[in-house]
Design a protein around this nucleic acid. Sequence first.
DNA 1: CCTATTTTTTCGAGCCTCGAAAAAATACTG
DNA 2: CAGTATTTTTTCGAGGCTCGAAAAAATAGG
Lengths: 415, 415
Amino acid sequence: MSVGIRHDDLRRRNRAMVISAVRRAGQPSRTEIAATTGLSHSTISAISSDLIQEGILTEIKASETVSMKRGRPQVGLSLNPEAAAVLAVVLSLNFLSVAVIDYAGQVVAEEQRRLDTLTMSRDELIGECVAIVRRRLEDPDLDVQSVARIALAIQGITDSHARAMLWSPITPQTNIAFADILEREFGIPAIMENDCNMMAVALRWRDPDRYRDDFIAILLSHGIGMGLVLKGELFTGTHSSGGEFGHMIHRPGGALCRCGRRGCVEAYAGNYAIWRNARQLSENAEPVADVSDAEMRALAARARQTDGPEREAYRKAGEALGFGLGSLFALIDPAPVAMVGASAAAFDLIEPALREAIAQTAGGHHSGSISFDTETNELPLIREGCALRALSFVDQEIFAPGTQARASSVGKNVA
Amino acid sequence: MSVGIRHDDLRRRNRAMVISAVRRAGQPSRTEIAATTGLSHSTISAISSDLIQEGILTEIKASETVSMKRGRPQVGLSLNPEAAAVLAVVLSLNFLSVAVIDYAGQVVAEEQRRLDTLTMSRDELIGECVAIVRRRLEDPDLDVQSVARIALAIQGITDSHARAMLWSPITPQTNIAFADILEREFGIPAIMENDCNMMAVALRWRDPDRYRDDFIAILLSHGIGMGLVLKGELFTGTHSSGGEFGHMIHRPGGALCRCGRRGCVEAYAGNYAIWRNARQLSENAEPVADVSDAEMRALAARARQTDGPEREAYRKAGEALGFGLGSLFALIDPAPVAMVGASAAAFDLIEPALREAIAQTAGGHHSGSISFDTETNELPLIREGCALRALSFVDQEIFAPGTQARASSVGKNVA
DNA sequence: CCTATTTTTTCGAGCCTCGAAAAAATACTG
DNA sequence: CAGTATTTTTTCGAGGCTCGAAAAAATAGG
């Protein structure tokens, strides 16, 4: 049951609104903030003077701005980089990375590390994550006090409370409560997010004109993932991170998927599936553990060159993605799509069959008008989304705290 | 861009909260309202005394309640039935009905009418709807002044602004802006909703314990429809009512669907599809316009009796629904399902294949624990949902109006 | 150096919610 | 039957927040 608004919530929410406006706009003046938030100048003045006093915002030096206009020049406000710091940890197949990000969103330090996630034990995996975070926190240049949040993104399914990894293709281990583990270990609030969801968050941040209220980010990689933003909010499942587009059923009883089931979209469109079809192996052939990017590029090159099994493999991938998107569009209506990941570089091979398939589905009316964009490198996106998520938490939960933490405000999926 | 909270919004929202608490609880005392809303007794006292003065709420006569407890007895508050009235119009295949509902939710008057929607012209269809509303409004017993809202539900796709029918299986006509037409004709605000969405709204109202924050209502009828509530809100598409579960793709290139495409879930699970398979007609056979409920009951009886084509037809329906639900669950996670409509009476024939199919999909882990409920009569549900929708509008937009109507508050899909 | 212009701050007014206390209305008790 | 205990509801003053208007601040143009 939703709860009434109390008087003290008012200031809290408007504080959060001001911080959020500054984060989005970069260096807005008080007047601009008043315009975007709809609050009066007096209110903005009061709130921002509080925030400056508390060291959350800073005024831009007047000398740095050249005002060509008449009148008192606007004073830009910006986030104080030293107000806090967050850690963005990204765990993907055989790869672990961490970045320290200041409150203004700049990367301060980072570390990357190769490891063999598929064969590691549960404790080893957890140990590596804890260790890489510890090394960053022990950096003498870093004021540990100021680290306000750790966000960890992983390829796989996370729970809807952003506490744990439930299942992941990068490890046989399941149900690892990374967020709780890191929180206990370092005493810093932590969250655990799905990688594709973070991609979507980052895309929206990078290009809010294109990716505004409704869009789809699809990861074309060894597996197929999706991040979905609907009505301006990140879409998640009722219990998990959800949006497992790759495991929608393309052909009942069809090709063997990495997840052990049959006929999933991923069993036709994942790298391993394209590789399997290109080699003309049986659809029942066990999915290979990994296909290198170089190998996939070679496949794509062959497909472009001759009309052989490679081209057919990409065609099948396009068909699976197209019918999958068609089913998705039946539920949510068509929306712009971003194809992310190494295989997005082969989207030219995928697109014809994909469009043909969509044309045969409910979203087909607008088949031609659905726009696809490609972005071949997912890692920077995931990290950026992760950082944004963590910073957004600091904005809302730490710098605009309720008298007591309200359950209703926590976990809001504002992308 | 979200907007700050102004001081006058506070009272508005809390007024709406109080009204909503009374609508949900029936006859709550001020103390109970304070408890559910989290607001102080003083605030509730002030707001409710305003609302009583304005004739929106009324106090229950003390004599009507027997207080066994010590202390000053609680005074129940209830919605004043005379505060307003709404019209719920339901347009389905060959059937049009309207109900006048008072502010407390009681049906005051109603009218039903058979017509031949499939062959009617655009103007005839509109004319019938306008006429049936006009007859109710001309009822001398009704105070026309008090009719605050007309809600029209239709089987088919509506736009996300609740203004128009975009497409419907009950008529060859498309893009009829019923809401605008009724609004112009009678000068009463009108909305146009999808029938299955209204089913979901009503289910939540009837059984909030079972259908709380996440559930699925599926209409098993001539076609297959769905109403989806996620995180406590009605789920709609980005541009349309969305949730076209029946037109997710079950088998690419498969059986011919009523929508003209191939392989939709509905092309296996709709009444016409079951009928087609039971008669062992080709999957390419043109879907018949209508199959009577009696005929479907006969099919189901045959299927229960002998293991012939009828049983196989229901099995195929179950399989299609199961794989469709499996794909849906991949996106949103499993949730309770209500099977609504005449064919829900044959759910015993559908369930085994349905569960078997789900077990082969991503939601399969919990296949056993997914609960299905059946409700064979959809019309009362649709009408009830429609009425609730209209009343909820009155609660929020008329009796708790903003200083100026805010775009952000309009169109919130609170079920 | 003065004026026009624009931004920002200040200040009092008006609401709103809250907590505490008072008032109201009943059941229990001897 | 009167007095007491108990529970609900209202009243009242305090504190906070936002707003509009006016003042103050800061700059360009003449």
